[in-house]
Design a protein around this nucleic acid. Structure first.
Length: 153
DNA sequence: GCCAACGTTGGC
DNA sequence: GCCAACGTTGGC
């Protein structure tokens, strides 16, 4: 099993939104970056992912979700009315993919980016690297354990 | 809202 | 294949 971190702007889609979805499942659509897309295609069912709130007042990890459907075509790219429309993605040659995620846990307090940056154990965590912009990135098992057990214990 | 960092595009 | 121009991300 592998571990991941997935970013979302809470004013677009927050962990509270996820909790209110039917079965607390949501298709993670709209990823338009190749590296992030490739990570999604590596995901397996029951992989765990941190839900990360970005571009907001208190950026950080707010909870946990799990992958419940492997990567499949993101058809929001075909929808001209969607903000995620991409004319270069076609039925014959789809460019973008998504997975389905399901709510697992909401932390009682946000593990802030600021806090993550202060930990020597997370020095190699991609999230805290300078200039990081990837919306989906891998988390090592050691990093996952440290964050869930030491930081959130 | 600013702006640094980064990814993508397209002319050559 | 280079690289300037442009668009986007996301912390602050």
């Amino acid at each position: 099993m592998r571990f991941w971190l997935m970013k979302s702007e809470p004013n677009v889609f927050s962990i509270d939104d996820l909790m209110q979805r039917p079965n607390q499942i949501e298709p993670w659509e709209g990823v338009r970056n190749y590296q992030a897309r490739n990570f999604m295609r590596e995901m397996e069912i029951d992989d765990l992912a941190f839900f990360y709130h970005s571009n907001c007042k208190e950026a950080g990890i707010v909870g946990v979700m799990k992958i419940v459907k492997k990567a499949y075509i993101d058809d929001s790219a075909f929808d001209e009315n969607s903000p995620y429309f991409d004319a270069k993605s076609t039925l014959e040659n789809p460019r973008w993919w998504r997975v389905d995620v399901q709510f697992v846990e909401k932390f009682t307090q946000t593990i802030t980016l600021h806090e993550l940056k202060t930990k020597i154990e997370l020095a190699d965590f991609q999230l805290v690297q300078r200039g990081n912009r990837l919306s989906i990135l891998p988390v090592t098992e050691m990093q996952w354990q440290f964050i869930t057990q030491t930081l959130y214990g």
